[in-house]
Amino acid sequence: MVRLITHNLLACHAKGCTSNNFPLQFQDVSIELRDADFNADFLRGFLPRLEWPALVGAARQLGDTSLPAEQPDMIDDEFLQKLHHVLLEIHVEEGAMVCPNCKHVYPISNGIPNMLLAEHEIG
């Protein structure tokens, strides 16, 4: 269950990889959609913590184009519903995330991302 809310918080942490290491790019993913309970306060509170372009880009990689390229000034219910779906209801179950900088591959298996590094890759 790598959801886009979590993807938005993950950066490559391999040794020496400190720039252009976010967002990780999805590769060969399979996704599942699962309903989640809606909480407008949570979404409003979380908005400032999101990297908006990264979220929009990741959603598009997964075939969801419902979010505007620019974060809107007006936060209405219709927008929050779309945000809710993109952040919390799309689950990446299999595939990988690849660092745009060093190309490190983080596999996703059974809904769990493997973010471990080998000893020589730890910074």
Binding site: A11, H13, N114, M115, L116, L117
Partner: peptide
């Protein structure tokens, strides 16, 4: 409870964004 598990050491891949 939708707990989101990550196979990672400590806060590793989350540290810069969190």
């Amino acid at each position: 409870v939708p707990v989101e598990p990550l196979l990672a050491s400590l806060a590793g891949p989350l540290r810069s964004r969190l």
